[in-house]
Design a protein around this nucleic acid. Sequence first.
DNA 1: ATAAATATGTCAATAAAATAACAATATCAT
DNA 2: ATGATATTGTTATTTTATTGACATATTTAT
Lengths: 206, 206
Amino acid sequence: MNNYVSDAVVRRLPRYRRYLKKLKDQGIQRISSKDLGNIMDVTASQIRQDLNHFGGFGQQGYGYGVEELEGKLEEIMGLDRTYNIAFVGCGRLGRAIINYLVGNEPIYKVVGLCDNRPDMIGTEIAGITIQSKEDFKKRMQRGIDILVITAPAVIAEEVAEDVAGTEIKGVWNFGHTELNIKGVKVINVHLSDSLHALCYYINHPD
Amino acid sequence: MNNYVSDAVVRRLPRYRRYLKKLKDQGIQRISSKDLGNIMDVTASQIRQDLNHFGGFGQQGYGYGVEELEGKLEEIMGLDRTYNIAFVGCGRLGRAIINYLVGNEPIYKVVGLCDNRPDMIGTEIAGITIQSKEDFKKRMQRGIDILVITAPAVIAEEVAEDVAGTEIKGVWNFGHTELNIKGVKVINVHLSDSLHALCYYINHPD
DNA sequence: ATAAATATGTCAATAAAATAACAATATCAT
DNA sequence: ATGATATTGTTATTTTATTGACATATTTAT
């Protein structure tokens, strides 16, 4: 039950949870760190060490209860509550993500949409009307927990200016730039970076 | 000019390149590791150490030539060549990525498309006809460097079986599962993992 | 031309992360 | 019930990654 949790650990939590969910769906009720490590291709030691940042969820001689541990991980990540989420940019990527969340991750409630393309404004996705930047700026003031930016970098940077002072606590940015907003956690996703890393590995086998 | 390059270093390369590109576009011709470090919020030491895995690209008292270093990084990552790329899954996410690559990253030549939805088969994106799984299986045999999987996990796992033995050298997988194909570098992108990590941070400020 | 300032590449030191070790405790088989 | 086996939580060790230090070379200013 250690205190400081490094980014490296945080990044592994969703993965643990994914595997536990899968095990649960397979009807498996208990798992040892050793077996889980084999499945996930990590050491048992790392699993135990990671989990013990948050508490002792296992039992000696038995292992971990799959369902219980999955639940604990969800608590830890805050997946046992709901989030009001809004999108800036309703192009293909935005729609893909909205679609996925609506269908698969009901804890995220889509409550606002914004796009600057005139033909989109006023139309609906998932029952929510797409607003212009001006109207959305008002909408942004209250009742949004997470802002997803699936718009070009220039727009992302513009929007970032208006985030401070709202209730927004997290930004998930897909624009090709790195946002940094004081008091707000931003995760900048650079899809092409991972493609470029793939190219590196292709050209440097082993 | 060290030899072994860790994943941590490889993951940073695309980011260095992004920033150098930006500097170049701003007309800046030289930069020191110190200044670049300030801009990128990393230590100068890390930049120098990372770059020196691949050679000494700088000059004492001067720094690095922006354009030259960007070029070197592109060489290192293999972005100075072209890749034949094919997509399994032509839904919104697939189209978003195809669209982006066609418009912004001309080194990737889209040469094949596949989807199992009957109404899509035979239609075109970016001048390429969408094939059924059966037809695509033949197409896959030769002339594809990178396979992008923007299809559900079940389909991703099916397709993964057919990759070995082809000329495919890399797989960029967005299906919600972790593929592992012998002899092929796979990058599994788990978008929701990063959203879940964001939730963790929202619920654990500081 | 010279001195001061700048900034690299690399080695050394430090910090962080991952792994291993193990005492403590529970389970399982008989 | 008892001993053998399994498996945790935690501390110790090892490995890896990051940062700092510095000798050396280049540039800039005078």
